[in-house]
Amino acid sequence: MSNDKVITAEQLTKRFGDFTAVDHISFEVKKGEIFGFLGANGAGKTTAMRMLCGLSLPTSGKATVAGFDVYKENEKIKRNIGYMSQKFSLYDDLTVKENMRFYGGIYGMSDKQIKDKTVFILRHLHLETEGDKLVKSLPLGWKQKLAFSVAIFHEPEIVFLDEPTGGVDPVTRREFWNMIYQAAADGITIFVTTHYMDEAEYCNRVSIMVDGRIDALDTPAQLKKTFEAKSMDEVFLKLARKAVRNAD
């Protein structure tokens, strides 16, 4: 396997009884890439992502993450990935620093590493004075940015973001994407699912899932050309309308 491919999936499939949630999908993600994973609700995005994170075993097909096999080496995968879900915004009843200490701790970082990194992140986000405040006292936008910082706290190779900007205002979303670009520039691969089509435009490459299959995979510019669309929004609607499966 070549070194610059951090995620590979070949004919990856997940069935739940008669229901095929993910239907033979194949794709590759390169190091440092921002890979958009799009699809309507129920298209199978989350299931695919869970398989890559080692939360769920595939029914068939092959996949590697950070060079490790999803069947046999999911412990190693877990050490090399970060994860942030829409629901997740840290522990409300702990302070910012305590949250960082905890996440650093469960990834086995040393006290010194955790301390240095905490100082670095707080300075970077201009939150030096907020470190000892409870997370619940912070505005949602800050929480979201902190959550992302925590997801890449242990400097993983890949970070999976599951609809990270849900419920956040446009300005914060913009700032959030700046952080994503920064992380990608630092060499972290970004695997992101989203509902916002303007965000899809920010991605290097985008895949669109319909009914468990990947129906399109290319750069946003190329996709718009192929589907003769003015925006990603249009591309998405053209594909999503073909869906047979009901969104849940």
Binding site: G54, L55, R79, Y83, S85, Q86, K87, F88, I106, Y107
Partner: peptide
């Protein structure tokens, strides 16, 4: 409920 369990399960813990 809070979704933090998933984060635990994705971690090496």
């Amino acid at each position: 409920e809070m979704g933090t369990m998933e984060i635990m399960l994705v971690s090496p813990m």
